[in-house]
């Protein structure tokens, strides 16, 4: 790749407000991240968040039907995914977690979706009070840590969002 090509890639990133781009060719691998950081990442390291208090009557939160991908072994040269910047969305109430407004509807958000501050991420039901939980930041949904219909505890982390 020459300087001109690189420049046009960077320009395109900026114009389309892409936060991150990975380009892999037989010769090289380039990862560009906007916001001053440039990172080289082999594969996204899995984020494992263990809720402090798992509800007594429910199976472990780790078994997620929606996320069956086995955790890849990180390559030695791969730095760990930087999760410190991620904003945790926690449950403000004990209840049942729903990803969609009704059983037939599309989920509010999926992993990788861009969300705006104030956008609804999920519903937590408690005694038939449907609580639409808003995102407090704009950014990208990196992880959804609870599966649909699961009982959740107060303070349990539901989403990880990378602020834009």
């Amino acid at each position: 790749m020459n300087a001109k090509e690189l420049k046009s890639i960077l320009q395109a990133l900026q114009e389309h407000e892409v936060a991150e781009l990975t380009l892999e060719t037989p010769d090289y691998k380039l990862t560009v991240k906007r916001g001053g950081e440039v990172q080289y990442v082999a594969a996204p390291a899995p984020v494992v968040i263990q809720p402090q208090a798992a509800p007594t009557s429910s199976p472990s939160v780790q078994t997620q039907a929606e996320n069956p991908t086995p955790a890849p072994t990180p390559k030695p040269e791969a730095p760990k995914e930087d999760t410190s910047r991620y904003v945790e969305v926690k449950a403000p109430i004990v209840g049942t977690f729903y990803r969609a407004p009704s059983p037939e509807a599309e989920p509010f958000v999926k992993e990788g979706d861009m969300v705006k501050k104030g956008q609804v991420l999920c519903i937590i039901e408690a005694m038939k009070l449907m609580n639409e939980i808003e995102s407090e930041v704009s950014g990208v949904v990196r992880k959804i840590l609870v599966s649909n219909g699961e009982p959740i505890e107060y303070g349990q982390v539901l989403f990880l969002i990378e602020p834009a």
Binding site: M130, E132, E134, E136
Partner: peptide, 23 residues
């Protein structure tokens, strides 16, 4: 939690509560 039933157990009324929560 909040269905109103008649004395013979039929439904008279129902409630739906939807809250908008941020933090």
């Amino acid at each position: 939690p909040n269905d109103l039933l008649s004395p013979d157990g039929r439904k008279l009324a129902g409630v739906l509560l939807e809250a908008q929560v941020s933090g």
